[in-house]
Design a protein around this nucleic acid. Structure first.
Lengths: 159, 159
DNA sequence: CGTGAAACATTAGCGGC
DNA sequence: GCCGCTAATGTTTCACG
């Protein structure tokens, strides 16, 4: 598994697949000026080496009734009485909550920043009160809500 | 264009394609217990009606050297001297900055929350100083940086 | 890296429930 | 209406030059 650097063509392939993950290998080969077989070999290498993490369909949140996006910051009880670290407890539990679309440990006063995606304020409220605030590690929480989505892209800036 | 509700099968299709956007129609049909043709018809309908917004490949940010995620909140000069609204000026300009992976108008003291994805602090600094702070609508800005990615998914909770 | 051929997938038309 | 069969067309994939 040689962890080679990406050349211009590899970057082009990533750019195209970022825009359309269902491009056929033939069409992709055309766009990057290669014939299908070397193109496919490169794509497989990019998948195997982890440059391409996953292919996904992006579902419209509003259309399926998940129109409320909230950003929540929380502060954790750093050394609670228990014997294990609350940071990793919380990080583990977050994985099982489907409302949490993203969670990062952050610099600054708050420990974690989360993006929560739910149906409406009633659902948010239930999640915040019954799940987040009930978690033993959480000592403070602040929420703010998205009024408008200005931009949202999974495309990375490749060169 | 009948904007019909989704039945159980449609939701299953969305769930499968959220997890793997490159599923073949045959495999998808198997998983949702349908034969290929009605399955494809449903997928096309979901695409046309906008339930599926896009198919994408998710590229690993660390691997391509974009390891720094910053969250930036900004406050805008609400009624500057000029004749047009600074909110929409800023919203328009954000579209052209490839560093900005997401931007939402938010409730609370800050007007916008942005996720910025760049190579390192030096690049962030240049973007913040030369682009963001130079924008005529921006009057205040606060940044914090991701120390660790705990969770990040594009999958929506489809019951 | 490209060619070509086998294996496989997509998709339109048609009949049946 | 929505399903599933069939058959033609298009695509992927791999051994080999």
């Amino acid at each position: 598994m040689p962890e080679l650097e990406l050349d211009r063509t590899d970057r082009q392939i990533l750019m195209e697949l970022q825009r359309d993950g269902r491009l056929s290998n033939q069409e992709l080969a055309d766009r990057v000026s290669l014939s299908p077989s070397p193109c496919l070999r490169r794509v497989r290498r990019l998948e195997e080496q982890g440059y391409i993490r996953q292919y996904v369909a992006l579902v419209d949140a509003d259309k399926v009734g998940l129109g409320l996006v909230a950003y929540v910051t929380i502060r954790l009880n750093k050394h609670s009485g228990s014997s294990h670290a609350p940071m990793s407890d919380f990080a583990r539990d977050v994985q099982d909550w489907p409302e949490v679309a993203a969670c990062y440990a952050m610099t600054g006063e708050m420990d974690y920043l989360m993006r929560i995606q739910v149906q409406d304020l009633a659902h948010f409220s239930r999640f915040a009160m019954d799940t987040l605030m009930q978690h033993p590690a959480v000592i403070d929480m602040r929420s703010s809500f998205s009024l408008q989505r200005i931009k949202e892209t999974s495309e990375l800036m490749l060169q």
